[in-house]
């Protein structure tokens, strides 16, 4: 079996990030704010983390990607890039929720054991998930379901830290009722958190092949069905 060397890519928001976790437990990552330029930065960043880690492409054992929710095209950039890499290197994929990545990253930055992660979904809505620390794994886990919620119907659970652009949208819509010290609305998902969640998922056998690609858009109604005109 190949030694565990995981490459992780995250492009679901205006940020683009890449990380690699080596079998020695070393983590290298790159992060850039690159609105609408993910495809431009991604290849360079993948090369960069591999050089930092001293790995060749053929040393990679898994390719992890942020599988949404988020910007539709952005989510597909990571997913389809991961598919290409998976087929080219003949390695499995690992799909990790963008909200889980955001929550985990929040834990790394703010040491918050309970995180409500929310991403701006536009049109007055946000993608939302509540995450709690599991002390055994040291990772935040989903409590309940990830959902699409109207900003003015967002219920803030007690003792949760609030992370992500969803709360920015809330603030702008004037419906955020929370003290500033429990909010980080600027926080973006980061591939360093993705790669750690991926390592755990791999140990639990949660891997995919390229033809099993998983994307969780959450918002699935994207067009109105029309009646065929008739005379």
């Amino acid at each position: 079996m190949k030694k565990l060397n995981i490459l992780a890519i995250e492009t679901s928001t205006e940020a683009c990030s890449v990380a690699v976790l080596t079998h020695r437990g070393l983590l290298f990552s790159e992060f850039e704010l690159t609105p609408r330029q993910h495809t431009q930065f991604l290849p360079r960043m993948m090369d960069a983390v591999l050089v930092q880690a001293g790995l060749f492409k053929k040393d990679l054992s898994h390719i992890a990607y942020a599988s949404g929710p988020g910007a539709f095209t952005g989510v597909r950039i990571a997913a389809s890039t991961a598919q290409g890499i998976s087929i080219g290197l003949d390695i499995p994929l690992v799909a990790i929720s963008t909200l889980a990545i955001l929550a985990q990253h929040c834990y790394h930055i703010h040491h918050t054991e309970r995180v409500m992660a929310a991403l701006d979904a536009r049109m007055g809505e946000a993608y939302v998930g509540n995450y709690q620390l599991n002390n055994t794994s040291g990772l935040l886990e989903l409590d309940g379901e990830e959902t699409l919620v109207r900003l003015n119907q967002l219920r803030l659970p007690e003792h949760y830290f609030l992370a992500g652009s969803g709360f920015m949208a809330c603030r702008e819509a004037g419906c955020l009722v929370a003290p500033e010290n429990i909010v980080d609305a600027d926080l973006l998902p980061h591939a360093s958190a993705l790669v750690q969640l991926a390592e755990h998922a791999i140990k639990q056998g949660k891997t995919l092949t390229a033809d099993q690609i998983q994307i969780n858009y959450i918002r699935n109604k994207v067009a109105e069905k029309k009646k065929v005109a008739s005379l």
Partner: peptide, 20 residues
Amino acid sequence: LMGALMVGACIARALAWALD
């Protein structure tokens, strides 16, 4: 279509990247 083209382009380029 932008989004549709993007899927094929990303798979193709990533495949080329992986295979050098």
